[in-house]
Design a binder for these strands. Structure first.
Length: 647
RNA sequence: GCUGACGUAGCUCAGUCGGUAGAGCACAUCCUUGGUAAGGAUGAGGUCACCGGUUCAAUCCCGGUCGUCAGCUCCA
C-alpha cells in the first residue's frame, strides 16, 4: 500500500496510507480532536472530514474555534432547519440557506406565514432530528442527474440555481442528512448530532435572488452552538447590544427624538443632543480652519434647474421629496438632497485663478432625502440630516496630495472619538455604463489617483466594483452598529463630471481656461449617522469633552445649596457644562440619577467641604475619588477636555 | 416600497375570551435635612396611535391610515 505525507499546521509531517479519510487522521492524533473537528482544510480548501486524501497534503482541522469551522457548523444547521421545516410543512420549497456572520438563514417558500410559535416548533423538531445523529452524506453527480432529482421533488428554486451552474467549472453535489437532501457545495459536519444548542432568532421576507421583482420568500434566521454556555453568552450579548442601541439611549439620555407629528425620519434634537452635536461640529470647524477650509452657508432649497444640471433630477426622483411650486408659476424648487450644486455656484460666483486652488468650501449643510419607509433607522438612516460637507476644487496636479490631506482629516476625526474598528472601501465603477457619467478615461485616472492616495496613507482597504457614485469613484469609511449592521460614515469622492456639467473653470498660468477637479468629502458623513454610531460606540458614556453635562454638583442637604451654587458658578465661569441638583432628596438618590444619566463627574458638597472650601469628587462607574480643591478639579477636568481623553 | 410582528400614562410594561383600564419609575405637594446607586406619605396623569365597520356595547373583532421593530430591496 502506498503512503502519503501529511503536513500539519505546526510543520510536522506524518505518513498515512493513501486514501485515508481526514477523520481517521484526526482519530489517530487524539479522540478529543476527532470529537471537536467539524471539517478539514486540505491545501487551503475546506472539505468534509470524510474526504479521502490521495496525495501529499497540508491539512488543518477546523473546530468551532475557527471562523471557517463555525461557518460549516452553521451551514449544516441551516440544512437541519430545512429538514425540520420539510417535516412540518411537506409542501415547502427551498431557496438558499447559507451561513452568515453570526449564524445562518434559510429562505423558504410556504404559503402560510410562519409565526414565532412556529419557530419554537421548528426548533424542537430540529433538536429531535439532531438526536438521530444522521450523517451528512455527500453525493457528486452530473448536472442532468441533479436536475432530474429536483424536478421529481418539485423544487423550482433549486432548478433555477442549477440552471446557472456551469458543469465544467463547478461540481454539482448533493448532501443527504436523514430524509433531507439538498443541493449544496458543502462542506458539512460529519453528522447532525454535532449540533447541540439552537435558537431561531427571527423571520422576515426576502426576495428570491435579492431581486424585488421576484417572489418574496420567508427567511428564518438562527444560530447554533456546541455548548449551552456559548448559546447563553451569545443571547446575553444580543441583549446587551440592545441596551446600547442609539435609538434607546437617545431617548433615555434626552439627546433627540422622532414624532410622527413632524414626520417619520425627521429627527428633533433636544438640548443635550444639540450640545453634543455642536461640540463635534466645532471640533471639525477648528480642524478645518487649520487646514485652509472656507466656511459658506447656503439655502436648504434650490431651483429645480440646478438639479437638472447636476443630473440628480429626475434620475433620483424616487428618493427626493416632491418639488415645491406655486399654482400659477413655472418656478419649481427642490428641497436639496445634496449640497454640491449650491457650492458650485459659489465657486462660479467670481473668476478663479490657478493660484486660488485648492479652494475648500465647507458647510454643515442639511439635506433632505425621501428614504423608503422600511429603510428608516433612527439617526443612522433619516430623511433629514446634516452633511459635514466640503467641496474642494483642485487642479489635476494637486489632486493626489489633496486626497491625502482629506484622508488625514478623516483619520484625525475618527481617532479623536476612538473609532478604531472601521473598514475602508475604494468604490470603483463597473461595466454598467448607464450608471455613470463622464468619460471612462477620466474614471480610470480618478481610480488610479484614489488608490495611490490610499496607498500613500497606508489605508487597509478593499476595492469594491460597482459601488461608485454616478460622478466618480470614492473612498468610504465604514463602521458597524451594535447589531452588526454596516454604515458608511466618512467619504471622499472624486468628481470629473460635475465640473463639466456646471462649466466650472479657472484661469491657468498659461492664461487659458481650465477645468478644476472636485473632491466631495465628509469626514463624519452626516452628523446624525455619526452621532448614532458614536452613542453605540460609547454605550452613552461619552468622553468628557463630548458629553452634554460634564459635572453635576450635589449638595448633601438643603443647608449647603448656597455653597453648591458658588461651586457651580466657578465651574461655569471656567467653561464647563455643569448643573446642580438642589432637589430635596438624599445624595444616594441624586447619585443614582447621575449615574443613570451617565454624567462623568459628581461634586458632592456638605458640611466638611463647605468648611474646608473644597469639594468631594465622584467619577461615574468608579465611585468616590476623595476631596480636592475646586481649582485642582477644574485644572484636571479642563486638561482632560482639552486633550480629548477617552477612557 | 415588500414580508411579518407590534402600537395601553412622560418612560418600561401588565390587562380586558367585547361591558371605556392597572403597576413600577418619573412628576407635584407634604413629612424628613439625609455623606457616595432608590427615605416615607399623599396626589395628579390615559379619546388604550388615528379613521371607519360589525355590535345593545369596541382598547379588545374586522378593514384602512400613520408610526415603530426585524429582514429584504434601495441608498446621490
Amino acid at each position: 500500500m502506498e503512503n502519503i505525507n501529511i503536513t500539519f499546521p505546526d510543520g510536522s509531517v506524518k505518513q498515512f496510507e493513501k486514501g485515508i479519510t481526514a477523520f481517521k487522521i484526526a482519530e489517530s492524533i487524539s479522540h478529543r480532536l476527532a470529537d471537536d473537528a467539524l471539517a478539514v482544510k486540505v491545501n487551503g480548501e475546506t472539505k468534509d472530514l470524510q474526504c479521502k486524501l490521495d496525495t501529499d497534503s497540508t491539512i488543518q482541522f477546523l473546530t468551532f474555534k475557527d471562523e471557517e469551522g463555525k461557518e460549516v457548523y452553521w451551514h449544516s444547521t441551516s440544512h437541519l432547519m430545512a429538514h425540520a421545516v420539510q417535516e412540518i410543512y411537506p409542501e415547502a420549497k427551498f431557496g438558499v440557506g447559507p451561513a452568515i456572520e453570526g449564524g445562518f438563514y434559510y429562505d423558504i417558500d410556504i404559503n402560510s406565514p410562519i409565526t414565532e410559535e412556529d419557530l419554537i416548533k421548528i426548533e424542537n423538531k430540529m433538536l429531535k432530528i439532531a438526536k438521530c445523529n444522521d450523517q451528512f452524506i455527500r453525493q457528486d453527480l452530473s448536472k442532468d442527474e441533479a436536475i432530474k432529482f429536483f424536478k421529481a421533488k418539485g423544487d423550482e428554486y433549486k432548478l433555477e440555481i442549477l440552471s446557472g451552474i456551469d458543469e465544467n467549472s463547478e461540481s454539482v453535489s448533493l448532501y443527504k442528512e436523514g430524509e433531507f437532501v439538498d443541493l449544496c457545495r458543502g462542506p458539512h459536519l460529519p453528522s447532525a448530532g454535532k449540533i447541540k444548542y439552537i435558537k431561531l432568532l427571527n423571520i422576515s421576507g426576502s426576495y428570491w435572488r435579492g431581486d424585488e421583482h421576484n417572489k418574496q420568500l420567508q427567511r428564518i434566521y438562527g444560530i447554533s452552538f456546541p455548548k449551552k454556555k456559548m448559546l447563553d453568552e451569545h443571547l446575553a450579548l444580543l441583549e446587551e447590544a440592545k441596551k446600547r442601541d442609539h435609538r434607546k439611549l437617545g431617548k433615555e439620555l434626552e439627546l433627540f427624538f422622532f414624532t410622527p407629528k413632524v414626520g417619520a425620519g425627521l429627527p428633533l434634537w433636544l438640548p443635550k443632543g444639540t450640545v453634543l452635536r455642536e461640540t463635534l461640529e466645532n471640533f471639525l470647524r477648528e480642524e478645518q480652519v487649520k487646514r485652509g477650509y472656507l466656511p459658506v452657508i447656503t439655502p436648504h432649497i434650490g431651483n429645480i434647474e440646478l438639479y437638472k444640471t447636476s443630473g440628480h433630477y429626475p434620475y433620483y426622483k424616487d428618493s427626493q421629496f416632491p418639488t415645491l411650486k406655486f399654482e400659477n408659476s413655472a418656478e419649481e424648487y427642490l428641497l436639496r438632497p445634496m449640497n454640491c450644486p449650491h457650492h458650485f455656484q459659489i465657486y462660479s460666483s467670481k473668476m478663479r485663478s490657478y493660484r486660488d486652488l485648492p479652494l475648500r468650501l465647507a458647510e454643515f449643510g442639511t439635506v433632505y432625502r425621501y428614504e423608503q419607509s422600511g429603510e428608516l433607522n433612527g439617526l443612522t438612516r433619516a430623511r433629514s440630516f446634516a452633511v459635514d460637507d466640503s467641496h474642494i476644487f483642485v487642479r489635476q496636479d494637486q489632486l493626489k496630495d489633496e486626497i491625502c490631506n482629506v484622508i488625514d482629516l478623516v483619520q484625525t476625526v475618527f481617532s479623536a472619538v476612538g473609532f478604531a474598528d472601521f473598514t475602508t472601501e475604494l468604490s470603483y465603477r463597473d461595466n454598467n455604463d448607464e450608471k455613470y457619467g463622464g468619460e471612462v478615461e477620466l474614471w480610470e485616472k480618478a481610480q488610479k489617483e484614489i488608490k495611490a492616495a490610499a496607498d500613500k496613507m497606508n489605508l487597509d482597504y478593499k476595492i469594491v466594483e460597482g459601488e461608485a457614485a454616478f460622478y466618480g469613484p470614492k473612498i468610504d469609511f465604514i463602521v458597524k452598529d451594535v447589531l452588526g449592521r454596516k454604515w458608511q460614515l466618512g467619504t471622499v469622492q472624486i468628481d470629473y463630471v460635475m465640473p463639466v456639467r456646471f462649466d466650472l473653470e479657472y484661469i491657468g498660468s498659461d492664461g487659458k481656461k481650465h477645468r478644476p477637479v472636485v473632491i466631495h468629502r465628509a469626514p463624519f458623513g452626516s452628523l446624525e449617522r455619526f452621532i448614532g454610531l458614536l452613542i453605540e460606540h460609547f454605550a452613552g458614556y461619552f468622553p468628557t469633552w463630548l458629553t452634554p453635562v460634564q459635572v453635576t454638583v450635589i449638595p448633601v442637604s438643603q443647608n449647603y445649596v448656597e455653597y453648591a451654587k458658588k461651586v457651580l458658578n466657578s465651574l461655569k465661569e471656567n467653561g464647563l457644562r455643569a448643573e446642580i441638583d438642589e432637589r430635596n432628596e438624599k445624595i444616594g438618590y441624586k447619585i443614582r440619577e447621575c449615574e443613570k444619566n451617565k454624567i462623568p463627574y459628581m461634586l458632592i458638597v456638605g458640611e466638611k467641604e463647605q468648611t474646608a472650601g473644597n469639594i468631594s469628587v465622584r467619577k461615574h462607574k468608579e465611585g468616590d475619588k476623595g476631596t480636592l480643591s475646586l481649582n485642582d478639579f477644574i485644572d484636571n477636568i479642563t486638561d482632560e477636555i482639552k486633550n480629548k481623553l477617552i477612557n
